[in-house]
Amino acid sequence: MSPPPVAATPAALEWVRRLSARHGPLMFHQSGGCCDGSSPMCYPLGEFRVGPRDVLLGEIEGSPYYIDADQFERWKHTRLTLDVVPGRGAGFSLEAPEGVRFLIRSDLCEIP
């Protein structure tokens, strides 16, 4: 069985739990483009209105993780791991004021 397309490091899981305790249920949306592009954005569940062209990649601690369908086409050969690093980020992601930033690490999917 192939591993899930999105996973999380223990440090990221800890932050997801901490943010969830403070803000309630969460969601993630994978960004693209410049500045903080290619970074995951973490919002209160429902804050970002998911459209018909968003793909549900998986869940992290019960929080859905979405990516735009066109972007998914270009990313689908890789498996994503949510990690967290010291930093600040931009955008409206929930963790930024805590002095940390979620980050995506990637591995190649095994070709069946």
């Binding site: 410049c34 500045c35 903080d36 954005m41 970002f48 209105r49 931009a90 955008g91 409206f92």
Partner: peptide
């Protein structure tokens, strides 16, 4: 806004 796509979409929303 200048930035990335997810925040761009959120700002449009």
């Amino acid at each position: 806004f200048t930035g990335e796509t997810t925040t761009g979409r959120l700002i449009m929303q």
